[in-house]
Design a protein around this nucleic acid. Structure first.
Lengths: 243, 243
DNA sequence: GCTGACATATTGTCGGACAATATGTCAATT
DNA sequence: AATTGACATATTGTCCGACAATATGTCAGC
């Protein structure tokens, strides 16, 4: 017979990918710190023994993940991928997967109450103050739909940040992004300023009092309101979210 | 006075970014379906009126997000970014943010029990069968650490898939990836095969019975075991996760 | 010390070139 | 008829060199 030996499928990775991986490793392993400037393209090209074009392609590969950013729109800088970068890429994936409001909401029901609960444990006085400021502004703009949307989103972000849990922040970033337009539609359709303010106030009180159960419970109520809002506004709860 | 008019800060986006955005839009908006072949680089260059190098950089930008993949290592194909692609990019972000086990675990405590609960509503008989198969294999390999790790991870993935909630799948992908090594360490240190099997079995039973509360509860117990494992194994519960 | 002029460095874009490899075509062979 | 082989073609990966636009640094002059 002929097939006595079998060979591994040899993987001829393109150079730009190899270069990209090397740079990524140097970054993730901490060899290059966040905030450091990357060597110039010409330098990198020399070091790796490839052309500048190849280096450029490698860099683009990393740039989108938010690992690399520009400092003053020239030199590239190693950056911590923030929630925006992650939110963008994951939420566009969700869009392509035709995720429905219901699916999004279910995940948010897992994460937002959790955020409220955890915030009770770790919110600093500064963060509590920011929440208080937010509440005050909410009370003022209750009838201005656009402004209300802003403070509503901000409130949830503040609570999430108060958890000091980066994993949570990154996980909920895409949800945030996708809910944005939906919240806007609900607010315009139902003017739920009052209900929002009440729920937020309870969550805030709970956080200040360190009452985890109450924070969790009111966050949950708040999210259920959101769901009812979509249903009542006939915004298509089982429809794919729109970008 | 001089400042009667004010000019917008003109944003001179580099061409490769513009091209990348245009392609991305065409994809996300559904103008190009997943599975479609992208035009060749030369074509794109002509259409956009730029050089091939520029097009290539634009493509690299999208390639990393998993939106574009290769068909047979030549032509580029529009692809749905799967959980692997998302998992990779988000988990590397979490690594850079020095996320601790505790933070990860907290998020998992929000998502895994939720997955169990939702799976009760939507698991098909096929999926239940897959879970049953997994349980059978788990019983067999209980003392083989590597194999046990595999089936353990698989079980959680199967439950998550049984929810048919893409948002949930994408959100938990990075956690999965980061827990992997930790699970391995726990299993090697404590040989918790028995406890794992018991918990899995209860979750499975609950899913088959459609008992949401029970599924949620046992998933929670299972995750608490995981936490105790890290603590008992002295694996540094408040330490940053290692890649 | 600040300003402005100037040199320099770095990125963004272009154009062309070539090797390696898939893909398609078509005749020759069995 | 199906397979094989030879050949032309298309497409990607990589290289080179070039230039414009723009930050950045330097240094004289006020």
């Amino acid at each position: 017979m002929a097939t006595s030996v079998s060979f591994d499928r040899l993987s001829h990775q393109p150079a730009y990918k190899v270069v990209s991986e090397k740079i990524r490793n140097a970054i993730v392993s901490g060899e290059i710190q966040a905030g450091d400037l990357l060597p110039t393209e010409t330098d990198l090209a020399e070091q790796f023994g490839v052309t500048r074009s190849t280096v450029r392609e490698a860099i683009r590969l990393l740039e989108h993940g938010g690992i690399l950013g520009r400092a003053g729109r020239k030199r590239l800088v190693v950056t911590l991928p923030g929630t925006e970068a992650i939110g963008r890429s994951v939420s566009s994936a969700m869009l392509m997967h035709q995720v429905t409001f219901e699916e999004l909401w279910q995940v948010a029901m897992g994460l937002e109450p959790l955020a409220g609960k955890l915030a009770c444990l770790s919110a600093t006085t500064e963060e509590k103050q920011l929440l208080a400021d937010n509440l005050a502004r909410t009370a003022q703009v209750m009838n201005d739909h656009d402004a209300l949307l802003e403070v509503e989103i901000e409130f949830h972000n503040l609570v999430a940040e108060a958890t000091h849990n980066n994993a949570l922040l990154l996980a909920r970033a895409p949800l945030n992004q996708l809910f944005y337009p939906a919240w806007g539609a609900i607010i315009r359709a139902l003017s739920p300023g009052k209900r929002i303010l009440v729920a937020h106030r309870h969550v805030y009180d709970a956080i200040c009092a360190g009452d985890q159960d109450k924070a969790e419970e009111w966050m949950e109520k708040h999210m259920r309101d959101f769901r009812r809002g979509i249903e009542m506004g006939n915004l298509g709860f089982d429809q794919p979210v729109q970008g």
